[in-house]
Design a binder for these strands. Structure first.
Length: 409
RNA sequence: GUGGAUGUAGCUCAGUUGGUUAGAGCCCCGGCUUGUGGAGCCGGCUGUCGUGGGUUCGAGUCCCAUCAUCCACCCCA
């Protein structure tokens, strides 16, 4: 219907029965994360804007796409566009690092980015993610990937592809970018139009190009692998051997990079093979220097974030059928107190009811009860009648008999 | 941010080269019938044709603007 008010662009309501699917998916996420000893963290929707600008990078798109404003006291605030920076902030601010040398957190939360909406890309969207602080060892990278892998399986998402790479430290990346830019500039005349445009702003993206004419140039481009330290190389090989041990298929992609400034070392991405343009379901990696950079102790970390809406587009998970145990008909107000007493008793005993407060006539209530998959209908009038809608048996009962009769059915 | 497409009932859609009171199916509500039971039959409700201008004797239909959605680029989860 035409409404006086409408929702903000890029936002959406989640209505039943879809909310049920969300609940089920969230339950799976909670269970799986907790199975691996991760604990949930919740952070505020709003943060000071510099938390993001200074840590995900001023020049990144995510930073530019923030919903930000100045509040009444002149503070610069923003709705959170990503979760890692807030989680790290909370981790440091709470002193958690003292209590838990190995600290494992997960979240399910709404994030906000002022992008142009399209399928799989909203302005308010939901991510879940995990962050493991305190271990620099390759086993931690592998555990994170294992959890992501298990979650995708548990959520009945098939046709995914894990790409993995090691990108070294931020300094090495800067060096690499200079070399790469030089290389592409030497071959600029052979590059596609799109890639020429990227040359200045984002040369690393050229490596991702799908244009045919770019392929041979990309093939011979210098790889970041050639620049990373020996330790990083050893670490990366360890991660790969853990994945082999786990039987997790991966695709080593020397061109894979991340869009946020804080990553280093292992990076990975899970994409779907279906033809969606927004095919990145999950992205993550190491960020060993972020905690210290944000004023905390020297603590290494690794984590990932996954887009829930995108996963739902891929998930074969179906909402389980909801059903009602007892449909309640109590149409005469003079029996209301008796009716409520009964309702209270059977709900206290765990039964799921539907009370037709609209007071349709009994005939239509029966139809309604069947349509809504009720097991039985309780008709409260001068007498109390309970009818099992599966066996079609009905009994006239006293108030005290109702529970024992329900239990028998 | 750039480009393209689309907006008619709660949903899915019809609506002829512009021509009277704008339609169907599903959903919802009610009645009849079938043993008060998922079917069948009958009836009922719902629309500023996204919004605002313009052209015209006349606009759901043509033009402009605007908003929203979808698709692609870009980027990302």
């Amino acid at each position: 219907m035409k409404s006086k008010y409408q929702k903000i662009k890029g936002t959406f309501d989640i209505l039943p029965p879809e909310t049920q699917l969300w609940q089920e998916i969230e339950t799976i996420i909670h269970q799986t994360c907790q199975q691996f000893g991760f604990e949930e963290i919740r952070t505020p929707a709003v943060e000071f804007v510099n938390l993001f600008q200074e840590n995900i990078g001023y020049e990144t798109d995510v930073s530019k796409e923030m919903f930000g404003w100045q509040d009444q006291s002149g503070k610069q605030l923003a709705l959170k566009p990503e979760m890692t920076a807030p989680v790290v902030r909370a981790y440091i601010e709470s002193g958690f690092f003292r209590k838990h040398p190995l600290c494992r957190l997960y979240y399910i939360d709404s994030l906000f980015r002022r992008e142009k909406p399209q399928k799989g890309r909203q302005r308010q969207f939901n991510q879940f993610g995990i962050e493991a602080f305190g271990s620099r060892n390759s086993e931690q990278d592998a555990e994170i990937i294992l959890i992501a892998n298990k979650l995708f399986k548990d959520l009945k998402i098939n046709n995914t592809r894990l790409s993995i790479n090691s990108i070294g430290s931020p300094e090495i990346r800067t060096k690499y970018e200079v070399v790469l830019k030089k290389y592409f500039n030497q071959n600029a005349n052979k590059l596609s139009k799109v890639s020429k445009k990227r040359l200045e702003k984002n040369p690393i993206r050229i490596l991702d190009s799908k244009e045919k004419e770019d392929q041979s140039i990309i093939k011979n481009a210098p790889l970041i692998k050639e620049f990373i330290s020996k330790d990083d190389g050893v670490h990366f090989n360890e991660v790969l051997s853990h994945l082999k041990a786990l039987g997790i298929q991966y695709n080593e992609n020397p061109h894979l990079v991340r869009g946020l400034d804080y990553y280093n070392g292992t990076t990975f991405e899970i994409t779907t093979n279906s033809q969606q343009s927004q095919n990145a379901l999950c992205g993550g990696g190491r960020y060993d220097f972020l905690v210290e950079k944000m004023g905390g102790p020297k603590v290494p970390a690794v984590g990932f974030a996954a887009g829930i809406e995108r996963m739902m587009l891929e998930s074969k998970q179906q909402p389980t059928n909801k059903s009602i145990d007892v449909y309640i008909s109590c149409n005469d107000i003079k029996h209301a107190s008796k009716g409520f007493k009964i309702i209270k008793e059977i709900t206290d005993n765990g039964y799921k009811i539907f009370f037709d407060t609209n007071k349709k006539n009994v005939k239509n209530q029966i139809k309604d009860a069947i349509k809504n998959k009720a097991s039985s209908i309780l008709i409260i009038d001068d007498k109390i009648l309970i009818r099992n809608l599966n066996s079609k048996k009905e009994n006239i009962v006293s108030e005290s008999q109702i529970l024992s009769l329900l239990k028998k059915q």
